[in-house]
Write a protein that binds this DNA or RNA. Structure first.
Lengths: 252, 252
DNA sequence: CGAAGTCTTGAACAGAATCAACTACGGTGG
DNA sequence: CCACCGTAGTTGATTCTGTTCAAGACTTCG
């Protein structure tokens, strides 16, 4: 259908891939507020880029990966699997996200990571990044700041899961993703690429795919959102905010 | 009823309060692995202790507290309130916990804290602790380690909320609290003080008090747990682990 | 065009919520 | 010492949100 939108995601990047200095990821996490020299060093540490197709598991729970990535293009997510197959999605990685920074401290991953779309990764060696961080006391401050933000996000997420209705949950997830994408310049007004299947939404919010379908059906029929192929548009932001219980901020 | 158990919590502490050097909190969070000199310094920074009765709100969302505490005795919890009154409990503070370390970075709290039992707090000035941390690059590493542990806890917590049944959730909460208490030497075998009302359990796990009552009723009647006054005993650990879906670790 | 994957829709069902009455208990005060 | 009160917990009846099962329709893509 609207392949042009996929193009708008992948086309410009091929150019940008040449250098770290104008990468969006620089504003995030470990890499925020780096001095010019440090950017050069990070660029030196980068072992190259890697393309991975959609729906591939790129990191598996209980492993100890030797590589850490920055997501340049595309979407991925992080999840836990229960022994009986139930899946809980924990975080969506958007362009600029670091995957998985937690490796810097923990010996093994307690979650897996899977791509949602075709993806471009910047590849680093865990050892290199560890050394980079250890050499710079400042880095731990930044990492703390990063964890703190994530902790706040998760407090809101837990509240969503524990206390919100299906409609509130779904409205909040959509608004939240829109906000994160807009911050990265990846939304045109209220339209953005939306590669999640309803199964993902279900496994994020503690619902079943069927119920997600029904609930999103309501939002669509009432004219709050519109979905054309891979593009989601928020057509009535005010009402969406109301349904999301707007007073308290969306889990970020 | 069994007031002797409450005594065993409060009696020995009066003695210990004299010095930081044998406080359990030293092993946790910010204070872990301090050198002797640093312990002295922390002790110098301590502005004294404070007793607060049960059920008092000690920190309110949207405030910027000037004080930070260490919980010496008793239980407290941290929660978020939705505009319509729904409450989500996020964390239980047990003796030795720091409340609320997040103040070190964020300007305002996004949650409130309330005591569950009578409580003894060690009081510090936020400014003093901030300076203490800023002066010591090591402190940020420790804080990162602390955040990392908490992040893992929350990943499990989210999975519990999203994907587990009421019985699994409750079994896991009980096992988790037991584990945390046992680690602190506050459990006698499988018995421990349990000051939570069913309303708290409900607001932790996304259930209603009525349903908590029914579900715990099942666990009691089947002989997995026993409750006498404020004392909970896990009478069949193996079966509790099974009900909790033991394979994956309890959210810690 | 066909096949696989995804979404929608309906009908029956289940787990949990809601409403409400009743019980047990610990503390308080007469 | 007992009666009373408020808080917490139990239990039952009913309702509702969300689940399960299943069939059909729509996409996407080779």
């Amino acid at each position: 259908m609207s392949d042009c939108i996929d193009d708008s995601e992948t086309q410009p990047t091929v150019r940008r891939l040449l250098s770290c200095s104008d990468c969006d990821a620089r504003k995030l996490a470990l890499y925020q507020d780096l001095k010019d020299g440090e950017v050069k060093e990070i660029e030196r540490l980068r072992r190259g880029t890697r393309h991975v197709p959609a729906r591939r598991i790129i990191l598996r729970a209980n492993e100890t990966p030797a590589e850490i990535y920055t997501l340049r293009e595309g979407w991925a997510f992080r999840f836990m699997l229960l022994p009986d197959g139930r899946r809980q999605i924990l975080t969506y990685y958007l362009p600029g996200s670091s995957i998985p920074y937690e490796v810097l401290r923990a010996p093994r991953l307690h979650f897996s990571v899977q791509t949602l779309t075709d993806v471009t990764l910047c590849v680093f060696r865990v050892e290199d990044i560890k050394r980079f961080v250890e050499d710079r006391p400042e880095a731990y401050r930044r990492l703390c700041f990063f964890y703190e933000r994530r902790a706040i996000m998760f407090d809101h997420f837990v509240t969503d899961l524990g206390k919100r209705t299906a409609q509130e949950k779904i409205a909040r997830l959509i608004l939240n993703l829109h906000e994160r994408l807009a911050r990265r310049g990846l939304a045109r007004d209220f339209s953005f690429t939306f590669p999640l299947r309803q199964e993902h939404i279900a496994d994020t919010l503690g619902l079943t795919p069927v119920h997600v379908s029904r609930t999103m059906g309501v939002l669509r029929h009432e004219g709050l959102i519109d979905i054309q192929g891979q593009t989601l548009t928020i057509t009535n932001e005010l009402e969406m905010l109301r349904r999301a219980g707007m007073r308290s901020p969306v889990h970020g």
